[in-house]
């Protein structure tokens, strides 16, 4: 038996597909949903604990990523370092939840921790190491 805590990021076109169901029925995996956020026309996110036989787990995750699911190990927390941030806004167009957002009037950037789903899309985008994951 192998167990992994993962974050499934669903692109908008996969949100209405029964991916989790297929993982359970076709790949014989046990899936415990820890957190979920699904919004129409946006990226959805499931934080899951998946367990099953090692080979089933590998095959199931392969199947899901082939479908276009973005699968990441669960990062515990994403932090924004306001001192390091230069408010370039580069991250704001990739942040799927609006956790990172721009006030258009003065083009200042702010981070709403409660909206962050730790999808990590902003991490490679920020050139100034202002977005950091804490495990």
């Amino acid at each position: 038996m192998a167990t992994k805590r993962l974050v499934f990021n669903f692109p908008p076109h996969l949100i209405d597909q029964p991916v989790t169901y297929q993982l359970i029925t076709e790949h014989n995996l046990k899936i415990n949903i820890l957190r979920a956020r699904i919004t129409p026309r946006e990226w959805g996110r499931l934080v899951v604990e998946v367990s099953g036989k090692k080979q089933n787990l590998d095959a199931g995750l392969q199947f899901a990523s082939d479908l276009g699911l973005d699968i990441k190990p669960l990062a515990q927390d994403v932090q924004w370092d306001a001192e390091k941030c230069i408010a370039c806004t580069a991250c704001c167009s990739v942040c799927p939840t609006g956790a990172l957002s721009v006030t258009r009037q003065d083009m200042q950037v702010s981070f709403d921790h409660d909206k962050c789903i730790a999808c990590e899309l902003c991490i490679p985008v920020c050139p100034y190491e202002a977005m950091q994951i804490e495990f």
Binding site: I86, C88, S93
Partner: peptide
């Protein structure tokens, strides 16, 4: 298409 800057307008101000 969503846009994002590389040049910081806030800092330019």
């Amino acid at each position: 298409v969503p846009t994002a800057g590389l040049s910081s307008y806030a800092r330019a101000r």
